[in-house]
Design a protein around this nucleic acid. Structure first.
Lengths: 211, 211
DNA sequence: AGTATTTTTAAACAATTGTTTAAACCATTT
DNA sequence: AAATGGTTTAAACAATTGTTTAAAAATACT
């Protein structure tokens, strides 16, 4: 009884949610209409409010999903029992993967958080905790042992994230400006990522040969 | 005759434009209504279309202004007859000033360009030219003389801009997350800016003492 | 098969959107 | 004082917005 019904239900529900996710990501909350979503999902307009109670409820569900998707792997890497150098490199690589898979994600999240900062999910608190807990102490120890330059985690992470994500935030501008294809942009992005890894590691970690 | 009339005209027109600029910056094109603008400007709704022909025309005018405002100083610094090191520092300092004065500017521009990449003004082409002309040749020469690390201008500029602007793009998130005041955020941002200057200069420019 | 429940549909809802109208207003000129 | 011009207003416009309704279709259950 429940199995089949649930399956069919989830199929239509998921169709709408997927279509909504794609459109919200591209156009944002204000720029998306309920009919846009229904049309993209090939479903009747009324179904949007049948499964999700309102446009806002649907949006909040998707926003939360996307926010978690973005944080999930970062938080996991934060807690990994590996050296800070390897951790930072993994963070960059993982972030790059996410950005490549969903280039509009960061711009979407930033815009919607700016629109309504109150909707920030509690997951962000964990981010904050790990930033000031695990990561900060790990950096402090490395600095103490003279293997790393002194830098606050609350500066380091935005610095890394920013320099990497900026080219994705401005992807449309770049592609339009340089008339590049999707593949060419990805090559450029990959090159940029590697450059950031080089810079971060070479700048932060003093080669133990000299001095 | 013309003087007074023109003055009054411009006063009302400018009132609307200023109010529209503030709201567009905060809420974006899709999130802004004509009545929002009229109310903020304390003017009748019809005046928006009386002075500017439509919401879109008004937006395009403001967008162009803001885009130029953002590029203007950057382009000027690009062409300055100073060393590349000083030039980069000036770029960061100037960018920081602009971001501090209008924290929503970059997020606004990025979002609106993503919404409609076709509206990109021709000013961006000049940006591209200078990036691949003046700046690239200046870097190449410095690299040739062994005074600077080899890095493409098309990677260096986004790297600098990104790491600096990211904290402003995520300003609302940061302030909400850390429960900071406007002043505290500005202190954090200033600290971040100085850190970026240190990193960029120390990483890029090899101290001529060693080797 | 027949009933009950869930899902889907077309149509309409009230509210809001950008925009326009036509009259009133006001300063200036005749 | 009358008329002219640009300016401002209240009111309405048609179109679109998110949402709801009530009937139809499809599915599950007895």
């Amino acid at each position: 009884m429940e199995v089949k019904v649930a399956c069919i239900t989830q199929t239509s529900e998921e169709k709408i949610k997927e279509a909504a996710k794609a459109i919200f990501l591209k156009k944002g909350y204000a720029g998306t209409t309920a009919r846009d979503i229904a049309e993209a999902a090939n479903m009747n307009i009324a179904l949007t409010n049948y499964y999700f109670r309102s446009k806002e409820k649907l949006f909040l569900e998707i926003f939360k999903d996307l926010f978690n998707y973005y944080c999930q792997n970062t938080l996991r890497i934060f807690q990994k029992p590996i050296g800070i150098r390897e951790k930072l490199i993994e963070l960059i690589e993982e972030d790059f993967r996410v950005m490549k898979a969903e280039p509009n994600l960061v711009l979407f999240l930033m815009k919607e958080i700016q629109r309504d900062p109150e909707q920030l999910p509690p997951e962000l608190s964990k981010f904050k905790e790990l930033l000031h807990g695990t990561l900060t102490s790990q950096i402090k120890e490395e600095v103490k042992n003279g293997r790393m330059r002194d830098i606050g985690a609350d500066h380091l992470i935005p610095l890394i994230m920013g320099s990497l994500q900026f080219i994705f935030v401005g992807k449309n501008m770049n592609m339009k400006l340089y008339n590049t294809t999707e593949d060419e942009f990805n090559d450029f992005a990959e090159c940029h990522k590697n450059l950031i890894i080089s810079m971060i590691t070479e700048y932060l970690f003093t080669p133990t040969t000299a001095s």
